[in-house]
Amino acid sequence: MLKLDNIRVFYHEVILALRQVSLEVPDGSIIALLGSNGAGKSTALKAISGLLITEAGAVSEGSIHFDGHRIDRMEPVNIVRLGIIQVMEGRRIFQHLTVEDNLKIGAYVRNDRAQIKKDLDLTYEYFPVLKDLRRQTAGFLSGGEQQMMVIGRGLMSRPKLMLLDEPSLGLAPVLVKEIFDIIKRINAEEGTSILLVEQNAKIALSIAHHGYVMETGRVVLEGSADMLQNNEDVKEFYLGLSTAGETKSYRDLKHYRRRKRWMA
């Protein structure tokens, strides 16, 4: 189980990116982390995976615990060894390596050859497209295939917890649907916990058990996925739904006040 306790994150020791963020990812669950651009979702993921140091960021207050280990001061390498893998935003593939080499790199921290072989097959089972492309140079894959490959690559480390950063970025709706189905299957069949950062709140909440909403570096709302889906504010701000027929205007004070309450 992952637990963030009141963490505060600075970049370059001056830019405050997260303030007093707490969240929990129970074993075997899918948690969605929603919010608009710049809300601090990706920062939260990087704080967990330790990749903050690559961007001169650091957790200055609070703590992050995973399965009894305190991880907020750990090197990314050791965090991966504990079983947390981050699938980074924007499909960070190794474009000159073949698909299979890309997947094998995912198992870098493991040494059990036989099991790695099995997991490779398992990954191909989840993503049959990749099997046909295994000898291809990864740079030539389409966006959807690349996204599948990086998720598969993350899977190859046999993580207890996967941090997915915007898996739907720049993909066609039908592909997004497919990928989210697979994420759900991975969670159900492998028991991998998943912390999912998404702009596409609707699809994220459709597979998540629980969700958090972030604004300007804070968690402003949390609840079960059902609860969030039915929350008026979430509907309006993130799902783009509002009471039918009503025209919206900035003169609508009620709307303004509600938004303001969140941003403060």
Binding site: V80, R92, D101, N102, K104, I105, G106, Y108, R153, S157
Partner: peptide
Amino acid sequence: TKAGLSMRAASEDKVAAQSLGIS
């Protein structure tokens, strides 16, 4: 080899390599 492969990976994208546990 694993070491060779990880060197090639790191040469392409250091941050992504780090995210996979490569030092």
